[in-house]
């Protein structure tokens, strides 16, 4: 297996409590801490491990977005990716960019770069879409191994354990293939300072989405982004007996 492509997305850091914009057009992103989507960190880690096990020769990290996407790509490089491709998308185009658009870019780059395996996180923690791997696989007519918690290379291809509702499933896929990384797949490493320094010298290519022939026309119109309904805190009860009577009142027992 020669090349692995990993998709990485820059998102608001998972520890940040997000705020909805007063005009309901989206969430506040200015001045808010961002980091690599946690599921994409798992994807990068898996790709780098494939390289360390000498199963893969090269790991290419790709991110679509404005200039700041390069920060996320540098993190991927510091974790062990060999080179990066920044697909520039900014302004209103980025606001309505969806997994369908991203997948078209990843599919095109997979062909251009003669990639054998694509790994992405199962979902981004901002839009929670859970689509990019599946769409990329469909566009390439490759098999998809979604929600992967274990990936093994065999002579014939891959054996992948998938997280499904209520248990686990094992499938075998041919290569080339697309994998979406679930939480249990691995524990991503931290980028060490020497590796962060080294990453600054690794190659990063910049391309425009339109040069890849991908149409970014929006497929949805955002009507509103609002706060969820607030739940009112209820009573604090002094002891278990009162709790039991509350449960009775509520008809639960």
């Amino acid at each position: 297996m020669a090349r692995v492509l990993v998709g990485v997305k820059r998102v608001i850091d998972y520890a940040v409590k997000i705020r909805v914009k007063p005009d309901k057009s989206g969430v506040v992103t200015d001045g808010v801490k961002h980091s690599m989507n946690p599921f994409d960190e798992i994807a990068v880690e898996e790709a780098v491990r494939l390289k360390e096990k000498k199963i893969a020769k090269e790991v290419i990290a790709v991110s679509c977005g404005p200039a700041q996407a390069q920060e996320t790509l540098r993190t991927a490089l510091a974790m062990g990716a060999d080179r990066a491709i920044h697909v520039e998308v900014s302004g209103p185009e980025y606001e309505t960019m969806q997994p369908l658009h991203v997948a078209k870019i990843l599919a095109k780059l997979s062909q251009d770069e003669k990639v054998d395996l694509v790994i992405v996180g199962k979902q981004a923690i901002d839009d929670d879409s859970n689509q990019t791997a599946q769409i990329t696989a469909a566009l390439l007519d490759w098999p998809q191994a979604t929600f992967a918690s274990k990936v093994e290379k065999t002579d014939a291809g891959l054996t992948v354990t998938r997280e499904i509702d209520g248990g686990l499933e094992v499938i075998k896929t041919k290569i080339p293939a697309v994998i979406s990384a679930d939480l249990r797949l691995n524990e991503p490493r931290y980028a060490t300072l020497p590796n962060i320094m080294k990453a600054k010298k690794k190659p990063m290519k910049k391309v425009a989405a339109k040069d890849l022939g991908v149409d970014l026309a929006p497929r949805i119109k955002i009507i509103s982004v609002e706060d969820p309904p607030v739940r009112q805190a209820g009573a604090v009860v002094p002891d278990v007996d009162t709790l039991v009577s509350k449960l009775k009142e509520g008809g639960h027992i």
Binding site: D126, D128, P228
Partner: peptide, 17 residues
Amino acid sequence: VRTIYAGNAILTLEAKD
């Protein structure tokens, strides 16, 4: 209507497809 940011915001969208 769907949730984004793990339920911390509610998105209402019109699908154009």
